[in-house]
Every structure is written in C-alpha cells, then in structure tokens.
Design a protein around this nucleic acid. Structure first.
Length: 590
RNA sequence: GCGCCCAUAGCACAACUGGAUAGUGCAUCGCCCUUCUAAGGCGAGGGUUUCAGGUUCGAAUCCUGAUGGGCGUGCCA
C-alpha cells in the first residue's frame, strides 16, 4: 500500500516530467522531489518546496512557477485541494476519507505495521556494549545497551537482516589484573594480611568470586603474603613506588606461584563469573545478543596473525625500535600505529584489525560499531586497516554514544570501574525500573551529552514521559474491557465500515499521526536515531489523551461506538509497536 | 599545541537533514473530575537558537573566525 505522502510525491514526479516536456526546465535536471508533513494545519497536510527549488532552473519567480505546477497537478481521489502559500510553497489538502484508510492497514498488519524494505535484506552486524568483563555493567554501559538494541530493532523493521554481537575482551593485561585481584582477595579470606595494590580491582564483586574459589579449592591456592610480595616493585604509596610496575610484578608472581593450571583456574573463575553476571544483567534489561565473540578465541585460532600477515603482504607493516608498526598514515591517520610491541605482545589495536576483518569474512554487508565517544580517535585507524587489507572500509559505520553524566543530590558522580565506585546498571534497574531506564536512555540523540538525575528518576518517576505513553496504551485497554463488561460485542468489520462517520478534530489528528509511523520508522532506521520514535510516541499519546478527554467512546450508538473503538484499537497497536522498538513494555493496566 | 564532538526558553531536550510564526516535557500561573483511570485535558507567560561575519529566494541547520564545555592525542584497554 502506498502512503499518502508517497502518492503526493508520485503526482509531483509526473509534474516534473511535464515541466520538462514543456521545456520549462531542462531535460537533464533531476530535482529531488521533497514532500514534507506540514507543521501548521492551515498549510494543509503535505507541502512541497518544488517551485522554490526550481525557480533558478526555470528562470521565473517561485510563485509564478508554483502556478504552473498546480495547473499540472493531476486530479487524484485523495486530494481535496491544492494551494500556493508563502514564498512559493504548494500545500496539499487531503480528503478526510483517505486519511482514515490507515486504520485498516494497521489492524491488518498488526505488529508488522511500520515495517518497510529500505534495507532490502542486506545483512548487518551490530556490535555494541562490548564492555570489558572486569566488573559489572554500570550506567554508562546502559546507554550503549539501550541504544544498540533499539537501533537493531529499527534496522530489522526497515528490512535489514540483523545480527547483534558483544565483543568480549577476555584477553590481555586487564584480565590478568583482574585474576590477580581475585587471587589476592582470596588470600585475605585465607587470613593473609597485606596492602591491596592500588591498581587492583577493588569492587565488592571481587570478594564474591574469591569466596567461591575458597569453596571450590579450600586452601590449595594459598601462599603467604611474605612469599607473594617478596621482591615486588613497591606500590605508589611508597617512596619511588609505581602502581603499574607493582601490579605487573604481582601478576608475574601469581602466575609463578600458582602454576599454569591453577592460575588458569583463577582466571577462568573470574571471567566466567563476571561474564555470566553481565549476560544476566543485559537479559533482564531486555537486551540480547546473537553472538558473544571472544577475543581469546580470535588469538587462539590465529586470526590476528593472519590479519597482520595480510598487512605485511600489502607492504603496510614496518619494524622500528623492535616493534611492528602499521602504516596507517597512508590512509589519513595522524600517525602510524604499533600492532606488535617490543616485548612481542600484540596490541589491542591488532585484535581490533583482526576482528573487523573477521566480521567482513563472515559475509556481512554492513558493520555497525557502537562505541563510547571517548574512543572516537580509533575510527580513522580501524578504517585505515580495513582499507589496507583491501576490504570495503565503507561497510563500517561507527556510531558514537556520549556518556550519561550522573547526578545525585546535585553532585556529579565520578565513575571508575577500578575504584569500585560506580552506579551499576542493576541498581538503576532496581531503582527506576527497566521501562523507564530504557526509555530515558534513548530519548536523547546518541551524540548529545546527557544528564541523568538519579534523584529525579527515583523520586518523581511520573515525570518520566514513558509513563505518559504507557498510560495511553493502558487507557485504551481499559476502555475496551469496559465496553465488553457493559455487554457490547465489538465487531471489527462493522467498525471499519463505520470509520467514515468519524470527523472530529481529534479523530483527524489521530489518524494523521498514525499515518506518519511507517515513515518515522524508515527515517529513524536510516539515521540510527531511535529518539525519533520516542518523540513520535509522545505525540501519538498526546493525540490519544486529547481525544479521550474530548469524546466518549462507549456510546449507545452502535455505528459511532464501533468506529471509535476501531480507531483507538489502531492507536493501541501502533503504541505497542513503537514501544517494542524501544524495548519498553505496553501494559494493559496501570 | 593539534584533531573530533557539542552549545536552542529557568532546567532537560526536539526541530522531518536548507523551509512558512523555532516546538515538547518539567517548573510558574489560570481553568476542567457526579461521566470509559486527573499518571489526563484546555489555556497563558517565557527566545537576538553563545557571539561576529559569509553563502541565497530562505539558515538553529552549510562555510569562516571567536568564546565556552566534553573527549582524544600511549609500544593502555
């Protein structure tokens, strides 16, 4: 089914052809026919700026050209009249009867209403969250999770084949620091007394893991504090100390004293515990993934070496100071980047090159990475590597998400995983609820800085617009139940047939909003902007609440009652569809 | 220093990607519950879109510069 807007666009495209035939504009010109929804009802339902855009090509003033265009507009059953206004806008007024057609389409297509095929079945990999498994997710990760999940939903509705993936950084120094932190806490539980390293992970969740180790291994992993700290470089608290050298020495000690097998056991206990916690956390947040992609697996299967080799073959790798460098400056990066360090260890960047190469090898047409905006400096070098490997670097789209700045008691909250001082996503869910949190995160444009006032979210949760939208849905459900309770039997065909009797301002306003939905979905999907859905839903809910206050739905008159119930049934469907894109529930009662 | 992002009502944010009189929520001030849920509706006030230039029929949106803020600029992840 063609939307009214598409219909108008088609009419105008025909006009353009006629303008060419009449030599008013040159044959070679292919103007972009722009049809927009009007903001002001006095301007009709749709408007085009065509006359103003062609004014130069046609060599005549916009209003004169507009006259010619209007004369060429073919009669169409949905168009009531056409007017010229302002500097040269052409306004289309659509017949009310045509506007109500959308109700039937909604009730036929149900949850599929709003889907389109702009994606044309292209496969897209959306990678998001990907927080290091060194601790529980905090509220900063929540924004990426909510945003990524909604973008994935949008793309799916727009006709893309979507896979969602979490990249697990389960290798590298940070993970060793984690394992060592867990082991040291375990030693404390065994009665050893020492100063915990300043650079270790100090959160309470570390103790929890240590305790499970104690249950599983008893005292088997115990070593004396004297042994552990003997010869270790002093921590920053001491004179000439260094927290980095201190923790690195402790990692070496842990590996040596425990032996490969037991160290591995501690390491795995830490990673598995935290990762399963993250999975459960996200699941409860309504965010699911098709794949949890392990960095360790990437290393163990030699993919990183293969990627570096590929760059070597392309002659983009050179050796300097004992390290291997990637010549990213050949592709516009600020400086060349190290992929293999002097000590033989591969950098995080080397993993990233391999990971992105692997993504493309899996056959995806489009790669979407959702990163915290603090990683924006990474974009040029990753794209450079993709170009160097002669892959399609245009396939990569990096979406940056600004941090949510948390406020509590008017104070900005500092956030650090290492120190263990942060508000977790779980705490946020417990305090404000899943629906409010999901909605709050995506109602802002992703690259906008966002203030998250916890006190407000907790104490006055009714200020959150999510309840406004959910309330509209619940109200409709209530009316439908009431109607049944009063003994009225609803019949959809009768309702659809009766729609022509609806004509109030609120009713026309509602169907106008409903008709916008598919277009909003398509636009939001292509721009990766779920906040547009949030704003749309607020508008739709507002139209419903206005209608509710202005009209009685459950009336004696069978025709009118059927018509009105049919209309709000369609509203209920679209509210539900839109909320589900955002991962928010549509309650039947509140 | 250099690079990227941001700046819109008291506060938090939109603005269909260059369109008509810049909107929405909160807060403030009036009204509307004997009627399907007042977590609602109707109305009012609040703006030199940070500043200065430029591009054109037309700029919050594009270009240049200034100011203010965030981030980046590791052989960290």
């Amino acid at each position: 089914m063609f939307s009214m807007k598409q219909k108008i666009a088609q009419i105008l495209a025909d006009v353009v052809q006629q303008l060419k035939a009449q030599k008013i504009i040159p044959e070679s010109l292919t103007p972009r026919v722009n049809v927009e929804n009007t903001r002001d009802k006095a301007h009709g339902d749709f408007a085009t700026n065509l006359a103003m855009m062609l004014t130069k090509a046609a060599g005549m003033p916009p209003r004169v050209l507009a006259e010619k265009i209007v004369a060429l507009v073919a009669d169409d059953p949905i168009v009531e009249r056409v007017e010229i206004a302002g500097p040269g806008f052409i306004n289309f007024f659509v017949k009310d009867s045509a506007k109500f057609a959308v109700v039937q389409a909604i009730l036929e297509q149900q949850e599929a209403f709003g889907c389109c095929d702009v994606g044309q079945g292209r496969s897209v990999l959306v990678e998001f969250v990907s927080a290091n498994p060194t601790g529980p997710l905090h509220v900063g990760h929540g924004r990426g999770a909510a945003y990524g999940a909604s973008v994935a939903n949008l793309l799916e509705m727009a006709g893309f084949k979507v896979s969602k993936e979490y990249y697990v950084n389960d290798a590298g120094r940070q993970m060793d620091i984690l394992a060592t932190s867990v082991w040291l806490r375990y030693l404390s539980l065994c009665g050893e007394v020492f100063d915990f390293p300043s650079n270790g992970y100090k959160g309470d969740y570390i103790y929890a893991i240590s305790e499970s180790l104690k249950v599983q291994f008893g005292d088997t992993l115990k070593r004396t504090a004297l042994e552990v700290f003997a010869g270790v470089f002093p921590d920053e608290a001491q004179e000439d100390g260094d927290k980095e050298k201190h923790i690195d020495d402790l990692i070496v000690k842990a590996k040596n004293l425990l032996g490969a097998v037991h160290y591995e056991a501690v390491f795995n206990a830490a990673v598995n515990s935290i990762l399963s916690d993250i999975k459960e956390d996200l699941r409860a947040f309504g965010v699911t993934f098709d794949e949890w992609f392990s960095e360790r697996a990437l290393m163990e299967t030699g993919v990183i070496d293969a990627a570096i080799e590929r760059l070597q073959v392309a002659d983009k790798i050179y050796e300097k100071g004992g390290a291997l460098w990637f010549r990213s400056t050949d592709y516009g990066d600020e400086k060349d980047r190290v992929v293999v360090r002097e000590n033989g260890l591969k950098t995080y960047f080397a993993s990233d090159i391999a990971y992105h190469f692997n993504k493309l090898e899996r056959g995806f047409d489009l790669l979407i990475d959702i990163w915290g905006s603090d990683h924006h400096g990474y974009v040029p070098r990753v794209k450079a590597a993709m170009k160097a490997m002669e892959t399609n670097s245009d396939a990569l789209e990096v979406l940056l998400v600004q941090f949510a700045i948390l406020y509590k008691g008017g104070e900005k909250l500092a956030m650090s995983t290492r120190s263990g001082q942060f508000v977790t996503l779980r705490e946020l869910r417990d305090e404000v609820g899943c629906d409010a949190a999901r909605f709050f995160y995506v109602q802002r444009k992703s690259e906008q800085h966002m203030d998250f006032d916890l006190d407000l979210a907790v104490s006055k949760s009714n200020e959150n617009p999510v309840y406004y939208i959910q309330y509209a849905h619940a109200r409709i459900c209530r009316v439908l139940r009431q109607s049944e309770e009063r003994g009225y039997v609803f019949d959809l065909p009768s309702g659809l047939a009766a729609l022509e009797y609806l004509e109030s301002e609120q009713e026309v306003q509602l169907v106008t909003e409903l008709a916008k939905y598919p277009e909003i979905i398509a636009r939001a999907a292509l721009a990766y902007e779920p906040h547009q859905i949030a704003y749309y839903l607020k508008d739709l809910a507002h139209a419903l609440h206005s209608y509710y206050n202005a009209s009685q739905f459950i009336v004696e008159d069978n025709t009118i009652r059927h018509a009105r119930l049919t209309l709000i049934l369609a509203v209920k469907q679209v509210l539900k569809n839109g909320l589900s894109v955002l991962g928010v529930s549509a309650p039947e009662a509140m």
